[in-house]
Design a protein around this nucleic acid. Structure first.
Lengths: 343, 343
DNA sequence: CTGTTAGCGCTTTCAG
DNA sequence: CTGAAAGCGCTAACAG
């Protein structure tokens, strides 16, 4: 009970007075300066304790020019961003790395584009991790001209270190798997065709098919809308357009795949006996679906962690690669077969 | 091409010089002070534009004594915290409210208890939202003595405004539902019995049963470990201990319930015909399970949003309730029956 | 309406 | 080894 609540927070000056030293000495003790007598340091530390002193990170940052905060910006029309399981994983990876480095994570899901630039130049953060490909080039250009270290995650831009997923590769893997399973009539379904990642997956899919001498016709490609049943709508559209129906379907992501499976079922098409189906993402539900969904997986946490590590490197003045690509891997499950003969 | 990158960031002084005014005038223009001539303001704003000036939030915060940052601290052994879907939802609710209020969200998943107190008193944030019940009373006591506004979410403590879920009520609702369905032999399974929320659910369950003249015996309560199959292990234990087997099982959460369902199945017990099963949380998987899981739901986003709103109120000097309770609601699905006659 | 001045709390030369 | 002094960039009186 000896210590009462102080009217105002103690400052370094209070500590100095209490310990009978100058403020510079207090600062030295706080910063583990080696050039300080052990006894003095001890006395200062006691004073800090006694006064419940905590140094203001604000004042320190202003002086030192660094905050130990790193911003994680996610540009998305669909806030709050945390609720998107994909971003949650990526942020999880970031969080782990940043925490180990003693950095604080300032999270912003930005709706207005100017917010990003503000965040980048207000001095609130020492560096910025920009997640996702919903950022327009113009903003990226201006971001590049800010002196703040920036790393892009799941997005690439000339002049800014970027960490991306090999979406094109994902598409090719899906195509090869479907080809191996004996597929002959291919289709691609997605919630939309604007998302750059989806486009890249389609591109990889198309290319690999082309390599096998197969062309993906426009009727075999459909987008059904950004909703729970987008895949269903897209699949229905394809089914209505193509006869006989496709026997190998690649969905831009797992939700679309699961939703497409429903359309296939209702159409009387059995998966995987009559149609093979492959998604991307390996969401939790994928393994629990009946039958379990074959999908293309990649390390989402690793994606975030890698980006965070690169940013940390840049903050430390180290060089980082301009572009890092995260590999993808096909996970064969119940909605497809890799052996050609069974269908 | 007229503007080259400046050596260093422009400061308010540079702007003042460029616009030919004093720095106070620049500050006024920046802060929308009404007592400034329109022409002057325009000139200043132009200068800002020309010099690509952004005022330092650090310097401003130091002067004004507020950062516009609010800390969201989650004490958890299981980092990264974002990956826990429960917390993700809560944070989503927080994020929405904070963003609308123009506040930045500083996320920390704290492993060491001192981190929380540091964060609370370094001046990095204007207020703190502490999520979850993994915080020891001692830390809470010290937190109460810090002058920083704090709001607890999913945890309650004397002297700190708290927003909690009615876990006891959830337990009672489950009991009543199971009772209504004709249950006579009750059991409770969980991953652990240490989690305060689980204990509260059990407590509510027990009380409601007691109200019906039924006592829950120790053998009918089991914890199976904090893993994917914790519910399975717990259920197996109960099944081994009680004969005849229970016909009404309440699981502390949905993962445990789903996992318990597996044990029930393997034991040859049909759900819901021979055993009724109720979980808590309404996780995504719950509705997709076969049969769909009856569960007790509550608004996780609302939980976070309410806490955030209360903190904002405190920051604005407004009074907030000491304790706010989020209600729960039973969602009847396929693993139970409310009509007594069918079993 | 506008400029001058005095700090916010801390780090960092520069002298002792 | 330690202290005094000079700011980091901004805001808020206080005079004009």
């Amino acid at each position: 009970m000896s210590l009462r609540a102080r009217r105002a927070k103690a400052t370094i000056r209070d500590v100095a007075a209490y310990a009978g030293v100058g403020i510079a000495t207090v600062s030295r003790a706080l910063n583990d300066d080696p050039d300080i007598a052990a006894a003095t340091r001890a006395r200062v530390l006691e004073a800090c304790e006694a006064l419940a002193f905590r140094r203001s990170s604000l004042a320190r940052s202003l002086k030192v020019g660094a905050t130990d905060n790193v911003g994680v910006a996610i540009m998305s029309r669909h806030a709050p961003v945390i609720l998107n399981p994909f971003y949650a994983e990526v942020i999880g990876g970031i969080e782990g790395v940043l925490e180990d480095a003693g950095k604080h994570l300032l999270l912003s899901s930005l709706k207005r584009r100017d917010d990003l630039l503000d965040l980048a130049s207000e001095g609130r953060v020492d560096g910025l991790l920009v997640v996702g490909c919903d950022v327009v080039p113009e903003v990226l250009t201006r971001l590049r001209d800010v002196e703040l270290p920036v790393v892009l995650i799941d997005n690439a831009f000339e002049g800014i270190p970027s960490v991306v997923v090999d979406h094109v590769g994902a598409g090719s893997q899906a195509a090869r798997h479907l080809l191996d399973g004996g597929g002959t009539r291919f289709a691609f379904v997605a919630e939309n065709l604007e998302n750059p990642n989806f486009r890249a997956r389609l591109e990889g899919f198309r290319r690999a098919l082309a390599g096998a001498g197969i062309e993906l016709t426009p009727e075999a490609i459909a987008a059904g809308g950004d909703s729970w049943d987008g895949g269903y709508a897209a699949m229905s559209r394809v089914l209505a357009a193509i006869h006989p129906p496709p026997d190998a379907v690649f969905a831009a992501n797992d939700p679309a795949a699961l939703s497409a499976a429903k359309a296939l079922n209702e159409h009387g098409l059995r998966v995987p006996d009559q149609v093979a189906l492959v998604g991307v993402d390996d969401i939790h539900l994928a393994a629990h679906h009946a039958p379990p969904l074959t999908t293309v997986r990649f390390d989402k946490r690793g994606l975030g962690a890698t980006g965070a590590r690169h940013l940390l490197d840049r903050l430390a003045g180290r060089q980082v690669p301009a572009l890092t690509t995260i590999a993808t891997e096909l996970v064969e499950r119940g909605t497809s077969r890799s052996d050609r003969g069974t269908r």
